[in-house]
Amino acid sequence: MQAWDNERAVSLVEQRKNMPGALLPILHALQEEFGYVDPSVVPAIADALNLSKADVHGTISFYHDFRHHPPGRHVLKMCRAESCQSMGCDAVIGHVEKKLGAKLGETTADGTFTLDAVYCLGNCSLSPAVLLDGKPYGRVSAQVADFLIDDARRRA
């Protein structure tokens, strides 16, 4: 993941500004490059798309996906929807929160992990399901979660 670079960010905006409905593709491109959408880019986006800053800010804040701060080195998205509940995801999430010392939606103090809640990953026959750095895992018990977290830590 790149550190935030305003010049690069503006060029990502410029490349996409003529797409129909360009705002979401722009925000996704920024987040893919930097891991988050720095609020400092809002005026540039507003200018490029001829929107108000409030419109841009309102859109960024509407969607659960877009971050306002850099995430941890690893992002663990844990499903807490009904199918995963039926297989005990609440206990697994509780276990992980305790292990990492961070709640869903938070990043660990050492910046290693960001923990996110998601509502369905479409892996409902193999609940509980998680995504770790974009990779899917199914039937995730507390032990499996421990393994995934420890393994990710070893990779730094």
Binding site: A22, L23, L24, L49, Y63, H64
Partner: peptide, 26 residues
């Protein structure tokens, strides 16, 4: 193909259209 951004409501057709237009999915 366009990507949503983690809003369940965007499965509702009019919200989806708003989102495709680059707006809040209302």
């Amino acid at each position: 193909v366009r990507l949503g951004a983690g809003a369940y409501i965007c499965g509702e057709e009019t919200s989806l259209l708003e989102s495709l237009e680059g707006k809040r999915g209302q």
